[in-house]
Design a binder for these strands. Structure first.
Lengths: 322, 322
DNA sequence: TAAAAATACTCCATAGGTATTTTAT
DNA sequence: ATAAAATACCTATGGAGTATTTTTA
């Protein structure tokens, strides 16, 4: 039994007239007659009662008709679904992210993507940059939002944002109200760092910044999560050097001050395997490319790309909690 | 998309090896390659990732596989079901019967049929003989168990039983204990008849029997259901002439006495349209033919075909309630 | 280099067309 | 008499075979 035959049967069952059914099938009547006969032989039973004046369904034909429709519908839906998967319009995506990406408009970008493609579900899992790279390499993640240290070969990267580092101080800090400061000004303070295991690129960047400023930081606390650092600072537990995106954290009790003359940048990447052919990933990559393009022009929250601070080009202005 | 192609896809999805899949499909490898390529073109997406050393499913292929299986299974089941309907092994049968058939082993015959063919459901509906013939003619019944008067042309009949008439008397009747009687002996009694509308053949037979005995019955009551007649008789409401099958009714307070010298018979028929091609009906007809054959040899309840009474050949012996 | 998929071509089975006959009303 | 299905016969598309090439692990 072939789909073609099912279609013949259905056409005749609906028309109950060989010529009309054949016309509907864009064929001539004789091959339809023989095709129907062939189906009946295969099923071992008459499906139609017919003479030259009348065609009608037998009970076997009556029973077969809705089943045949069901088979066709199921096949059609299977094909449509497969086409969608192949076009990246349907499926699942496991994507990693470092917590700080929540401050960079990534959730909004993903929400918009899910909204635009109703049949793709993105599953986010928070992991360190290194963990993400490992997971992507081993196929446990499709892609990741991370701060790349050393990106393994075979990975493709998209730069989402380049951010300057700023000092993060308690609101009560003497320099909290300043427009900018030199890193040396806080060289003697307790420094809060992200653990190197959690984020080597950040760790190394801060160490390098301090070294350039002529000191080695007094590391008071090491944390693995950005919120922990901010809360510690707000409680007077120390100071930190953070990417300016942290300004969007919205935590009370901390202030951000630009670093005078610093051009060192924290780069936020989107990373995936270059050899991936996963359609849904390719679609997502396309979406992120276009998002990053417009996002680099207009950073999140509608803050203009060029803020007031000459030392913070292409990054949002420093907010001051009142 | 054709079923053949689904089978190719499934074979390759399961083997993940063109040569083995082709072998399983009893074909050579090159046509399988081109067929798969053709399917992929139709779906507009790769279903397999492949090189000379490895074949694997893409996400689209992974999604398609269970759907393809479902389509095949559904088609297979549709064909099997249709075959069953065509072979009369599945379906519904609306069959009429006159109430008296309950005394002739018909329910048992139907039960056995339903037991033997698990997928046929027989729907019984009690109707008079005339109503049945009308319903069969107009396709509202597939067949009927009835006492045929005039059977319309185009009907096929199977004689299920030929029964002699016996007198049915109250147990208190003076002649209730007799082995047999002449109809004249009860000519003066109140006679209970089935309404002619309900059963013309019975009505006419009884009238003819009385006429042959030289009298016209004093019709006291007319009833439309055999149980009503028997109950009336038990209550002393009159006497009746009934087919000997009524002996099996099992009602207390009535007695049956053979009619001396009478050979008039009540015939129980199974009737259906000669031109019917309904497989489930043909199967049922075959069943009833074989049932009637063995039933005529051995009547219900194990009563031998030839009883003690010489005047009641091929019919059960007259029972006497103690 | 060896095994496997892809390509190139060939062939024939059969889907489908045309012409005609049969049949039932 | 007529319309419709069945039959007979023909054509050609494309499914499947064989031989060969290409590819990559």
């Amino acid at each position: 039994m072939e789909i073609r035959q099912l279609k013949y049967f259905i056409a005749l069952a609906e028309e109950l007239h060989f010529r009309r059914a054949a016309a509907r099938l864009s064929m001539s009547q004789p091959p339809l007659s023989s095709a129907i006969k062939q189906i009946e032989e295969e099923l071992g039973t008459q499906l139609f009662e017919r003479n030259t004046k009348m065609v009608s369904l037998t009970s076997a034909g009556t029973a077969f008709y809705p089943e045949a429709l069901k088979v066709l519908a199921q096949l059609e839906q299977a094909c449509a679904m497969t086409r969608d998967v192949g076009a990246g319009k349907r499926g699942q995506l496991r994507i990693g992210f470092v917590g700080g990406m929540l401050l960079r408009g990534i959730p909004e970008a993903i929400s918009r993507y899910e909204y635009e493609t109703t049949d793709v579900s993105v599953s986010l899992r928070e992991m360190s940059s290194a963990e993400q790279l490992y997971a992507i390499t081993h196929g446990r993640l499709a892609a990741g939002f991370l701060h790349a240290g050393v990106v393994p070969a075979g990975m493709e990267t998209l730069v989402l944002r380049k951010e300057l580092f700023v000092a993060c101080l308690p609101a009560t800090h003497a320099r909290a109200g300043q427009r900018e400061l030199n890193l040396q000004h806080i060289a003697h303070e307790d420094m809060i760092l992200f653990a190197r295991d959690a984020s080597p690129s950040y760790y190394d960047s801060v160490i390098a910044l301090c070294a350039a400023a002529g000191f080695s930081p007094r590391v008071r606390h090491e944390v693995t999560h950005w919120l922990t650092a901010l809360v510690l600072i707000a409680r007077g537990g120390g100071v930190a050097v953070v990417p300016d995106a942290f300004i969007h954290a919205g935590l009370q009790g901390v202030r951000y001050v630009a670093l005078k003359g610093s051009t060192s940048q924290s780069v936020a990447y989107f990373v995936w395997r270059r050899d991936s052919t996963e359609p849904v990933l390719l679609e997502f990559v396309a979406h992120m490319r276009s998002w990053s393009k417009s996002n680099l022009a207009t950073p999140p929250d509608g803050i203009p790309a060029s803020g007031k601070l000459a030392t913070l080009p292409k990054t949002p202005r420093v907010h001051r909690t009142p």
